[in-house]
Design a protein around this nucleic acid. Structure first.
Lengths: 150, 150
DNA sequence: AGATATACTTTGATTATCAAAATATTTTTT
DNA sequence: AAAAAATATTTTGATAATCAAAGTATATCT
């Protein structure tokens, strides 16, 4: 086979298989070792300076609300998240980040920021554009081709 | 912020968070819906036309041998994998793929092949080189920068 | 031969996940 | 306004993935 094919295959397979492990290692350092990468993604989905209800967060994360309840119990217990009831509609549970939760949120953001800046540092403007284009292709592949197969 | 920064951030975050879900959807169709993406990666690690022992597979997958035993029990029960004892060293368990296991292996390979060809189709030779270079940068970032932080 | 090392499995615990049942509250219908 | 239906969330029961530590069988070393 073609050289580019081999290189792409090798790189993408490795990246796919390990990206979450990499992220986990990078993210769950000293201060935040009592939570999982999953928890971090829940924190990311809650967002800063806002209260969000369970259903909308579950939809973003593409998990059932039941699954999210369990994750949230954990995060509340560990002091990352606060729960409250909506006054308007008392069925609705509103969650928001505590100070500790906001720190974790920023830690995650900083990780992404560091990674992107590092990648940008290594590639000049034109190459960067190509990377963006290529990543779009990958995204397209998954959102168009793959979804249709299903 | 910079435009490329935003685009990269958006694309990488989405890809990171969803890549495994995408792969799972694409992979676990009709014929192979009784196994998980995880199982598929175990099958990939066993490989075709060979017998491998538990420890080496666990090392490749970066899980404990105990974890692998459980996955393997499942795959044997479902008919994807065969176990045998090494004649040389009777402590060693050798695993290999059954016909059904090899079919799954190829299905996985075909998925990767399809994806790579699709991406290549969309990018001309020069752009392809840039993509490969960029992916190397990402890999570098994780294997050098991140590991040192740990 | 006895002690130590190695390869693997088993056990007990935790986390993530889902579907379905249960609970509480709101909205709609009659 | 009471009853029925819908909605938001939690709880329950099951399964999968994971680890560390204990247990079992076999091989190697002294």
């Amino acid at each position: 086979m073609n050289e580019a094919y081999e290189a792409l295959n090798d790189l993408l397979v490795k990246l796919f298989n390990n990206i979450l492990t990499y992220e986990e290692r990078a993210l769950l350092t000293e201060d935040f070792k009592d939570i999982s990468l999953n928890d971090m993604h829940v924190i990311e989905a809650i967002g800063i300076n806002q209260k969000r209800n369970m259903s909308s967060i579950a939809a973003v994360l593409e998990v059932t609300v039941g699954t999210l309840t369990i994750a949230m119990n954990n995060l509340v217990k560990k002091g990352y998240v606060k729960r409250s009831r909506s006054a308007k509609d008392r069925r609705v549970v509103l969650v928001s980040l505590t100070d500790k939760g906001e720190q974790a949120y920023h830690h995650h953001l900083d990780f992404h920021d560091g990674m992107i800046k590092d990648i940008m540092k290594r590639l000049d403007g034109e190459k960067l554009d190509v990377l963006v284009e290529a990543l779009h292709s990958i995204q397209d592949y998954f959102t168009v081709e793959v979804k249709n197969e299903k």
